[in-house]
Amino acid sequence: MDTTGTFFLPPQNSTVASDIDFLWDFIYWASAAFFVILGVAIFYFIIRYRRRRQGELTTGVAHNLPLEIAWTVIPTILIFFVFVWGFKGYMKLHIAPGDSMEVKVTGQKWFWSFQYPEGASTVNELVVPVDKPVKLLMSSVDVIHSFYVPNFRVKMDVLPNRYTELWFEATAVGDYDLLCTEYCGKGHSEMIGKVRVLGEREFNEWLESAGGMGEGMTPAEYGAQLFKSKACNTCHSIDGSKVVGPSFLNLYNTQQMLTNGQPVMADENYLRESILNPQAKLVAGYDPVMPSYQGVLKDQQIDALIAYIKSLKE
């Protein structure tokens, strides 16, 4: 198995990758052969038969049955092979092995969240064990997104009105890029995450402690970690700059102007409401695009985030 990647393709880190790359190679080299044969013929003809004299008569031959049969039949045979291979691979990509571990995936403008049956949940980071099939049950809460891991050669659209499925089995421990490939608006190119593939034991350890507050962490430190892992940072800054949403710097206990013209004091209650029900009070100058974190964040996590926001004072 190739793990460094070729000139064109990224490394192969899943069980299906080598099949797909084989299909790539086949079409690639067959095409190259056609390209070279035809290219050489073209160059040869334009040199060999360049115009030497004005107004010469040329041959009237316009048919050659064997030749015409050859260039119809040979490509037909080739595409037939390609079709069958492609279809087989596709079926393989679509039928998850029965013993797959299941994770629920939600695509949302503009982050991914993952829900494990054991209760853990993560954002923009899918943690999976190596050498074990994983099945993703995916849906979206707004527009269409698409779940793509180049190194695994898997991709599937994530639709708002139904569940789609995707499975893979990672073959090597490591971090792999996870990308959104269906255009979904402003943050489309930042809807990027990681697939972290761990060894069996590490994975189980992770699963037990997942999502919890590390030992010896202060709530604000935990909040800082959540700020990144729950993707708040895709829309909020901590340095005072205005991004998609307002900055958290000096936010606590200051007056905010709402779209309805009312001022509001950014106290704990307001912050909590802003996280759980962001549309209730909209800050003037921003679009109502913040998703609700109801059900995504636990109480302890919300407290930690508020503690973190409080700590951001100049």
Partner: peptide, 20 residues
Amino acid sequence: IGGFTGIMLGALALDVHLHD
């Protein structure tokens, strides 16, 4: 070249990787 890569995109399993 455009046509041959069209064939690559038409091959189901390969298009999954290359789509979009």
